[in-house]
Design a protein around this nucleic acid. Structure first.
Lengths: 222, 222
DNA sequence: GCGTGTGAACACCTTCACAGCA
DNA sequence: TGCTGTGAAGGTGTTCACACGC
């Protein structure tokens, strides 16, 4: 039916383009070519141009893109023109850091909940931690629409259910476990152990290749 | 040349399989089918079987996989049998949380450095923070082979260079900026603002779809 | 002339579907 | 019979290369 579905890979790159556009704008420039913008985004010119076609046509042939216009258009298509309120579940090490560090526009952590009565009432990034039972109330009061799970793995699926019950349909999960979201709920997983494991794999490969280039005396690979 | 190159997408799933296998082992089971393991990993049976073929053949037709054997084999192929020491650059909110929370086997944060003299000498997850100038020394002394960048964006590319100079070739970057690694250095980016932006996109889409299903009185989309 | 927009080719990854083996 | 291992098919995302318009 819909042929104009934006590929997930494209969506993931838009925030990077937006950031690069902001950097160009700060330098006082008015236009960029796809080559320049791709360079600054770690992408390829053809890739960038293709990505943009999913949202419309923004450039001028022989010239490039109007930085301000392109930024505005992309931001609009991607939902970056409004601000987004976030509820955070889990006020441990990671949760606290997230609350303090990731409240930049257009995002704002407006509520933090935790099950541990000891941390309830303490403050994280300017927000007072509430009990987990008050999650639904907190969402209602603050109008949050994005949830972050920063609990231990065992508690994460409960947190996911609680967020869903509270009306949240977009969840960022930091717990290293498989969530079981209701249909219609978007979950993105950030799995640090997994990332480290991937790096470890590459490092293993690199070390193995080194050994092959400089084999131990007498050894030989036929 | 090499036809046995493991797809990046496969590598990213192996840590998840390993975790699922550990959960099965804890439940005292001896074998799993591809269907069960895929289910527990949020994958598909055919996907899982295909992934395994890149490393060898492990299963018994009509039966499934020996859990212990498969875990051991995968762990070996992926570099999870040895332990990995990590240097962390940046002892701010996020860096501190990472040092405290992500020192689980086979990974261990063995050194933390920061440019801020005020935090040098303080402790993070059992490790004393050192000055950034001592990075190379710290790497040498501890034998670290993975680096984590948890600095502000402006300082990230310098941190990348410093890590590379210190002999680190595998870097996990949390700073929202494009690094310029030397050839041969593997960088993985974890970009929280980007993740939130992607969620915001999906949430925008969902809200737009809701409006379309329950249009405002009198409105009509031809 | 220059850089965009895009059909077509390509590479990569996933899924199907079934032969083959315990 | 039951489940793996895998050719073949299908789908998705990327890159090429060039026509088009400023």
């Amino acid at each position: 039916m819909n042929d104009d579905v934006v590929p997930a890979a494209t969506i993931a790159r838009i925030p990077v383009y937006l950031r690069a556009l902001e950097a160009f704008a700060e330098r006082g420039l008015a236009t960029v070519s796809s080559a320049e913008l791709a360079e600054a985004s770690g992408s390829q010119p053809a890739q960038l141009r293709r990505d943009l076609t999913y949202f419309g046509t923004f450039g001028t042939r022989g010239v490039g893109y109007d930085i301000a216009l392109l930024h505005k258009s992309l931001a609009k298509h991607v939902g970056a023109t409004r601000s987004w309120s976030i509820v955070l579940v889990g006020a441990g090490n990671l949760g606290s850091a997230l609350a303090r560090q990731f409240s930049h526009p257009p995002f704002k952590v407006v509520a933090v909940v935790d099950i541990d009565p000891v941390v309830v009432g303490t403050e994280r990034g300017g927000v007072v931690v509430r009990g987990q039972a008050e999650l639904a109330d907190a969402v209602l009061e603050t109008g949050a629409s994005i949830g972050i799970i920063a609990t231990p793995a065992e508690a994460a699926d409960d947190a996911c259910r609680a967020l869903t019950d509270a009306g949240i349909a977009a969840i960022l999960n930091f717990a290293p476990t498989l969530l079981h979201p209701e249909p219609g709920v978007t979950v993105r997983n950030v799995d640090l152990a997994q990332e480290l494991q991937i790096l470890a794999f590459h490092e293993s490969q690199r070390l193995a290749a080194l050994v092959e280039d400089h084999p131990v005396e007498g050894e030989h690979h036929p």
